[in-house]
């Protein structure tokens, strides 16, 4: 058994060291894999707040991932074609600036998560899963049938967006951006988890009646958690779009929701680094098993089954004892 903090530090270092080595060895493909892992981990960290800490099994986080992606796609495509997004009642131009894109992605995802939360948090259990899924699918079909931004074919952005002072097309520099964002968000999540909001949210997951009996409304806690959760996953979506320089309705599809959930299950729900470990394992498996067979998802399924049956706390849960969550 390893202390969870030590394990977390190891995971964070590993995710940093691997691409740095790859950079030294001039292996950009490995850097790209690590970048993908960091971005997907960020999406998972977002979902983990709702699913792991809040106990809200959202099967619709692709909604926010896709919204982040399309925010980037729409802003950048207008910037590359020099056409404004709208002219009246006021002018909105596209942009290639990453910080602005991130901010817009976060605000839009948070807003939509708030609305979806407002409607779906009145239900629980399987109904909650279905309502969140329904919202995701709504946007999925909308994106397919909206020709302005590529419809079914998706949309390519030819040059990666800009970040002041950096060359974002250099893989290691883009990795650096994603890694720093991931660490900042994880730091924020660790603060949040040990705050009074975190204590109340964790208690509400375990026993909703307990929280009500001390005068706290679980609904509000969950709504705030869901909103922050959606915002973080939206940010990840914007980064993912920038990594691929391409967006498509797949980002909205329920496969994407499922994959983000898989990261959490593999790594460990309600564990700070659970989604990071999970996303890294996922990318590793995709790369290694995917090289062996086109049907690598069968192996993934088997591994997932083993984790769910024999290692309920995921990777982190099985190799480390639960750290005092509010220490």
């Amino acid at each position: 058994m390893i202390n969870e903090r030590v394990l977390n530090t190891l995971i964070a270092l590993l995710l940093l060291v691997v691409p740095l080595f790859a950079w030294q060895l001039d292996e950009p493909f490995i850097i790209t894999l690590a970048t993908k892992a960091a971005i997907l981990a960020l999406a998972g960290v977002g979902l983990n707040l709702a699913l792991g800490y809040g106990g809200l099994v959202s099967f619709g986080h692709a909604t926010f991932f896709g919204l982040g992606g399309y925010t980037m796609g729409i802003l950048a495509s207008h910037a590359q074609s020099f056409t404004p997004i709208m002219e009246s009642p006021f002018l909105i131009d596209g942009t290639k600036s990453m910080p602005i894109i991130w901010l817009v992605a976060i605000v839009i995802s948070a807003f939509v998560a708030f609305i979806i939360g407002l409607l779906s948090l009145r239900t629980t259990g399987v109904y909650f899963i279905m309502v969140t899924l329904a919202f995701g699918q709504m946007l999925y079909y909308f994106s397919i049938s909206w020709p302005a931004y590529g419809g079914e074919d998706g949309l390519s952005i030819y040059v990666r967006n800009e970040f002041p002072g950096l060359n974002t097309l250099d893989p290691i520099q883009f990795f650096g951006i994603c890694y720093v964002l991931l660490m900042v968000v994880i730091f924020f999540m660790s603060k949040l988890n040990s705050s009074s909001f975190g204590l109340a949210l964790n208690s509400a997951r375990q026993n909703s009646e307990r929280v009500q009996t001390v005068g706290i409304s679980p609904f509000r806690l969950q709504l705030v958690a869901f909103t922050i959760s959606g915002a973080v996953t939206g940010l990840a979506g914007a980064l993912f779009a920038d990594l691929n320089r391409f967006i498509s309705p797949t980002m909205f599809s329920w496969h994407t929701s499922g994959e983000i959930m898989v990261f959490i299950i593999l790594g460990g729900a309600a564990r700070l680094y659970g989604p990071v470990a999970g996303a890294a394992i996922f990318i590793l498996l995709e790369h290694v098993l995917g090289g062996l067979s086109e049907f690598w998802h069968i192996f993934l399924g088997a591994i997932l089954l083993l984790v769910v049956l024999f290692a309920k706390g995921g990777l982190i849960g099985s190799v480390s004892k639960k750290a005092a969550s509010h220490g």
């Binding site: 204590l199 001390v214 005092a324």
Partner: peptide
């Protein structure tokens, strides 16, 4: 899953209010 103290602190928190504080460690 929480400690005994955490359960009681939750009660004290409910009494005090200000649940929506995100950065200060409650314990």
């Amino acid at each position: 899953e929480n400690t005994v103290l955490e359960n009681v602190v939750l009660g004290a928190l409910g009494k005090r209010g200000k649940v929506f504080s995100f950065f200060k460690s409650v314990m």
